[in-house]
Amino acid sequence: MKPITLELATASKKLCFFFMTAFLLCGGSAFSATRVYQKPSDFVKSALGALPPTQALKLTAAQQNAVSRLLGKRYKTTTIRYWTRNGKTAYILEEIGKVEYITTGISVKGGRIEGMRVLVYRETHGMEVARTAFTKQFNGVSVKSDSQLSRNPRNIAGATLSVRALTKLARLALYLESLR
């Protein structure tokens, strides 16, 4: 009969060999994290009650510069679509959180944000910003004379960049509203 310590050592070695082999051979990956919370068309319908015709703001060079100052870089398109009905406007805007774009729906009425919803979240971290408890902080927010929001949202530990991205998009939506 083998001594018990020898058996344990053999078992440990086998276990170690198995995990090391799995580690070296396996090519698994977990970096695709796209979460679709709502289709953009569904957001526009829910925010405005119907889907009105698409309109667009073609930004001039000066307006593009103003947008760059708000975002810290150029917006991904030079023409931005919007939908308006009964004095309310809906925007579908995108901004990079850390490395991926966050697609966000923002409705604005009378120079104030009426609702915000994260529609598509592609980052692997920081998806807490998609929770209603976070986005509802933007409700009723307007922009001050220095282009800052009248009330900034609370930060979320581990989601700082995503919080910043949504804050920038809120400022962008209010800026676009002032151009219409």
């Binding site: 995990f19 799995a22 580690f23 396996c26 090519g27 698994g28 990956s29 977990a30 970096f31 850390k98 490395v99 692997t124 971290h125």
Partner: peptide, 24 residues
């Protein structure tokens, strides 16, 4: 290219190496 801080974060959590990384 990828941001280095993300790569280090994923290397720390093991995610960079897929499920064996998580397991280890």
């Amino acid at each position: 290219s990828m941001p280095l801080d993300r790569v280090i974060g994923d290397a720390h959590s093991g995610k960079l190496f897929g499920w064996p990384g998580w397991l280890i």
